[in-house]
Design a protein around this nucleic acid. Structure first.
Lengths: 344, 344
DNA sequence: TTGTAGGCGTTATCAT
DNA sequence: ATGATAACGCCTACAA
């Protein structure tokens, strides 16, 4: 295979005895080009194995019909669900998608954002890493005339569209459900409190505890234990107390899993002696024994709404939306499984 | 924020009273530019909020320091592991990564490949969809001077580097392990046979069955049942026979899960009455009860080796490697858990 | 060590 | 309806 030069619209033009600009128009279905000619050009393009060069087009047009997504992990069901939703909408609008993982690292997140800016994406959709506290990198996005939408885990202070779950309400309702089930000493394993999603879940929890008139020891409420291992460690400590919790509300199923494993190893019966309730509705939640109660965050819908926000509200209608309507709330669904149901 | 024009190297050059080409060299750490000047230029770039324009650079250079990956799903632990490995190596070499999902659809796979060609990626790493039988789209990659490496699920007939597991040997060994455990009527739930990974696993199975001198009814061997649901359906049929299988070897943990659920619902004890063994070592395999025996395919290593193949063997050393050495084999690790261990 | 000039492939604008 | 031309931002011979 010779290192032949790339086939361009000029090659097509030459073969067809027309100009490159006309070929370009034909390929792009320009209304001024007759269907018959379009077909002829496209046929020739195929025959010559011509491929469109996005870089050239992007350079010329200064924008790229591409959307960038940055998420902590692509293999958590919440995020892969979101991505599936985004993909679908982008596909409908004929936009490309570049997916980046931060692996919960601030540094990698900055790098990803940097790359996406270099690529001149039209819009960046981001759910920030657990480490992310400052947001100069996000402001830099806007400085480059790239649109920004945050979802799920947002920097509150940063002005941008946001797509969120009704975390506080859901958390409140979950605790109520636990209380109704007879649990009274409900511990809370949270995430980093500087992220709204986790802060809201904690607030909902606190509100419900108050509402139910329960008194919870201060050390039952632990922030920033977002991994299975950290959760397991805290669970070990708490469950070894003379007056241990009789339930855990966690902000992720991975934490729930950590708690469950510790409970098992300590011989504590779930759900009879200990209730467990989490967020995210990971695939494994309904598979394991006992199945884990969890919150379905409607990830695919979040993805769809987030992407649609760009296409419907931002593109064209360059943003004179009042700040107040810049938040979309997606309602969660509470899924009660065995891990929080004492009575059959 | 005004719709200001993008800051370019010309702006930096103007401010600093030098030429754009010199700025370009300074930013790229060209040896002929003194460190002191490099620093000054970079400082000014930062100050002006300059961002590199990849499109312009790619267009100029005709290649993009970007690698494209196409996988069926990003949220299966095998593939996300592979991606993690690839990411790491790309990062070391300062290459970008574009990740695409085919969702097991041939059409979407073609689309992804098309997009990556348009983006002028340096190399495409692909594990084809279950539907993929023809490979014109993959040949098209090579026609565009883009390098191609297949991993895991490969089109055998297509000449390219390949990174594979030792599927046949592993499958053979797994069956032996099942036989040693006392299982005798071992059914096989496979994938689409036109894909080497599944074909090899089947061959290993058949070889081991023969080697052990077992006789297996022909209907115990079923191809192309790659989902949990399909596996469950076949398991229901087989387990309802008067002489049912006493073990299942599957080619994915999702299938194993389907089998397990059916066994549970039929009141069949796993592993006492029915052994189950799968591939992929999904996260849930060790979590559920009984834990699922599976094959760890060393996904991260596959990713690393695949990416390294590009950087070490292809880049620069433009391919005079003999066809024979164009295959890398990664050894699997067999993980025996409860679902296939009769004796304690 | 630094600058000049040209071109990568496309598309928008202007002209015919 | 079709063509010529310039420009997007960068890099790299080549020149000085």
């Amino acid at each position: 295979m010779s290192k032949s030069k790339r086939v361009t619209i000029y090659d097509i033009a030459d073969e067809l005895g027309m100009s490159a600009s006309y070929v370009s128009r034909a390929l792009n279905n320009h209304p001024l080009v007759r269907q018959e000619i379009r077909n002829r050009v496209k046929k020739k393009a195929l025959q010559l194995n011509y491929k469109y060069n996005s870089h050239a087009a992007n350079l010329r047009q200064g924008s790229s019909k591409t959307i960038g997504v940055v998420v902590p992990h692509i293999d958590q069901s919440f995020f892969s669900g979101v991505i599936a939703g985004i993909e679908e909408i982008c596909f409908q609008h004929n936009y490309g998608l570049v997916i980046c993982q931060s692996h919960e690292s601030f540094k990698q997140e900055c790098l990803a954002v940097e790359t996406l800016i270099h690529q001149n994406v039209a819009c960046i959709l981001i759910s920030v890493s657990a480490e992310t506290q400052s947001y100069a990198h996000l402001e830099s996005i806007k400085q480059h005339n790239i649109d920004l939408i945050q979802f799920d885990r947002c920097i509150d202070k940063l002005d941008s569209y946001k797509v969120l779950n009704d975390n506080k309400e859901t958390s409140f309702n979950v605790v109520n459900a636990l209380v109704e089930e007879g649990y009274k000493r409900i511990a809370f394993l949270g995430g980093p409190e500087h992220l709204n999603a986790f802060k809201d879940r904690k607030e909902g929890y606190l509100k419900a505890i108050k509402h139910a008139g329960l008194s919870i020891p201060y050390n039952f409420i632990v922030d920033n234990v977002l991994s299975k291992d950290k959760a397991a460690q805290i669970a070990t400590e708490l469950l070894s107390l003379k007056d241990p919790p009789d339930a855990f509300l966690t902000v992720s199923d991975h934490q729930s899993l950590g708690v469950l494993e510790i409970a098992n190893s300590l011989g504590i019966q779930v759900p009879q002696q200990l209730g467990i309730f989490g967020f995210a509705n990971e695939a494994f939640a309904e598979i394991i024994q006992p199945s884990l109660s969890s919150v379905d965050q409607k990830s695919k819908e979040i993805g769809e709404r987030t992407a649609n926000l760009y296409f419907k509200n931002i593109l064209n209608r360059k943003d004179n939306t009042p700040a107040s309507s810049r938040k979309e709330i997606i309602k969660c669904e509470i899924i009660i499984r065995k891990s929080s149901r004492k009575v059959k």
